[in-house]
Amino acid sequence: MAENERKEKKGKKTKAIPVYGNYKSYYNYRIGHDLKEDPRLAVLKKEWFEGKDCFDIGCNQGLITISIAKKFLCQSILGVDIDAGLIENAYWNLRRTAKMECASCRSVEASESNVSNRVNGLEEMVSASVNKETMHFPIDSSPAKEGGLVDRVSFHKENIVESLDACSEKYDTILCLSVTKWIHLNWGDDGLITLFVKIWRLLRLGGILILEPQPWESYRRKHLVSEAAAMNYHSIVLKPALFQEILLDKIGFRTVENITDNLPGSVAGFNRPIFLFRK
C-alpha cells in the first residue's frame, strides 16, 4: 500500500495519515480565524510575480497559489502537489474564485452601463441648447482586463523528487513554502538535495526562490508518520540550519535575504522565517 494511502483506525472510522504533509484542512490549521488572507502574502512583493511565470511546490488546495495570481498579477502560475485529491480541491477552489470574480465583473459592468446611459441622456438634453463642440464627456480609458484566473492558474499532480528529471529553465519565481520537512522525512538528505537542484534548474537566470523551511524541532513531532520517515529522521545530517549554506555554496544561488522573522496573525507553530534566494 502506498505511504500516502496508509490508514489508522479511529473507532469505526479510518483517518488518513498525512505522510507527505498533505493535510486536507492545512489552511484552517495555519491561518487565524480572524484573518481574511494567508499572512505570508503580506511579506511578498508584487515585483516578484507581476508579469512573471511562477511555480508553487506543494500547493495543497491551491489557496495561496490563487491568491498570488489575483493579488500580484503573475503571467502564469503552476501549483503542484503529490496528492491527487488536493489537486482536485485546488481546481474546485480555482473555479469557485473565478466565478466570484466574474460575478464581481458583471456587477461593475452593470454599474458602468448605468453611468453610460445617464451620460448619454445628459448629452441629448444639452445638445438642443449647447454647442456639443464645447462639451466634454469622459471616455472609458481604463486598461484592458488581464487574462482571467483560469487562463493564468493551473494545477498538476506531481512528485517533484521522483519526476521532472529533464527540467530546464522555465520560471522566474518558485515558491517552496513549508515543504522541505516532508521531502526530508520521506526521501532523506538525498531527496532534499534533489529538490534544491531541480529548483535551481527550473529557475531562469535572475530568478528567485521563496523558501519557508520548517525548523528541526518540528521534525520530531512528525517522524513517526511512516517507517521511511522514522528511518530518515535518524539519519538526516543536513538540518535546516545548513540550508542557506547548501543553497549558496553548493547549489549556486548568489544571495539570500530573510524577508520576515515574524508573521503577525500566524497560528502558533507557523510563525516561521521566509527566505528569498536569487539565482
Rank of each mutant, 00 (worst) to 15 (best):
10 K>S: 14
15 K>C: 03
20 Y>V: 03
22 N>C: 07
25 S>D: 15
26 Y>P: 07
26 Y>W: 13
27 Y>F: 14
28 N>F: 08
29 Y>L: 13
30 R>Q: 11
34 D>V: 08
36 K>P: 01
37 E>D: 08
43 V>G: 05
44 L>A: 03
51 G>C: 02
57 I>Q: 06
62 G>F: 00
63 L>M: 13
66 I>L: 04
69 A>N: 03
70 K>L: 09
71 K>R: 14
77 I>W: 02
83 D>P: 08
93 N>S: 02
99 K>I: 13
103 A>K: 13
105 C>I: 13
107 S>K: 15
122 L>T: 04
123 E>A: 10
123 E>H: 09
125 M>F: 12
131 N>W: 00
131 N>C: 10
147 G>F: 09
150 V>D: 09
152 R>C: 00
159 N>I: 03
160 I>S: 07
167 C>K: 04
167 C>I: 15
170 K>V: 06
176 C>P: 08
180 T>K: 10
191 G>R: 00
196 F>R: 06
203 L>T: 07
204 R>N: 13
205 L>S: 15
214 Q>S: 12
218 S>I: 02
219 Y>W: 07
220 R>I: 14
225 V>W: 05
225 V>H: 12
226 S>W: 02
227 E>K: 14
238 L>K: 14
241 A>N: 11
252 G>I: 02
254 R>V: 11
259 I>S: 02
261 D>C: 11
261 D>S: 15
263 L>D: 00
270 F>A: 07
271 N>C: 04
272 R>Y: 04
